[in-house]
Amino acid sequence: MRRDLLVYGGAVLVAVLVGLALAAGGGAAPDVAGRALWDGMFGSPYAFGSALNTTAVLALIATGFTIAHRAGLVNVGGEGQMALGGIAATAVGVSLPAGTPAVLALTALLIAGFAGGALWAGVAAWLRVRRGVNEVITTLLLNFVGLCLVLLAVHEEALLRQPVTSADTLPQSEPLVEAARLPLLGPPESPATIAIVLAAVSVIVAALLLRHTATGTRLTAVGMSEPAAARLGLPVGRLQAGSLAVAGGLAGVAGATLIATVPYVLAEHFTSGYGFTGLVVGLLARGSLTAVAGISLAFGLLASGGINLQLAAGVPAASVQVVQSVLIICVAGAVIFRKGAAR
């Protein structure tokens, strides 16, 4: 436990130092960069609201990752699953009749998002269970395909592109019908939606599932020893496929919440790398859903702060990605020191 704290503390320290170096390299003095970062996190209701929305997306993806990881699977396909969830949600959200009640519309939208993501992860799950193909490589490659599908959907009028009226028509979908938009959580100047509530509920349900149900215990057994789980009569394939599909489904819901938030359209690159960041959150949390919630919030704030860092202090936003990957490399690289503690 003490070694764990040391490792995490050390990793955070290294990441902070790298962050400071990057800020300095971008020409921003530490105080300027710090101020810009802070403003981007808490400086305005807008900033904090968008941080919360990002937190929700990350928490949903990381929760799914944790569930699949419990069964021994590594889902690196969050990005593609979000893309498919977004496409499915858009398809539903633009075609609902005008008078649909909001509850119904939102439910339909989220279910579509879940189904889209679950389907995409289901491809990898099926290949893993039936053909023994490593899910890391398939979910990874399917990310590229999924992102191209978004591109396809927003460029083809036969699919989801808004009617082209002039050469300036943007390649994006029509906006969602009013009823399918996520209600705001607080004041109108903050974009925060009920997505954060949705994410919190998912985290709590997942924590209950993994800790206090037979299914959770079975998933753990499958993750720790497939042969022993099979010997004891657990449906290994079904548990694995199911957990990966749920992971994809939650990523799909994350995609759907992005679509159902301002500006309510499906556009190129709407996933903006959240799939990867969600994966990082899941890895850092190492199976603890409390940690998922906490790290998601930290990373959500960091993402929002990073945007302001670029706008206000001229430090490329890519530095946030660098800091995140340094963090994960440090934690993953320190694994033998933690193992030493376990002995």
């Binding site: 753990t220 020893s225 042969p227 789980a229 010997r231 009569g233």
Partner: peptide, 17 residues
């Protein structure tokens, strides 16, 4: 490999099935 899940508790191993 097959007999038990060494990362899980005695109780869980006894009643997993």
């Amino acid at each position: 490999h097959e007999g038990c899940v060494t990362g899980m508790s005695v109780a869980e191993n006894l009643f997993l099935g």
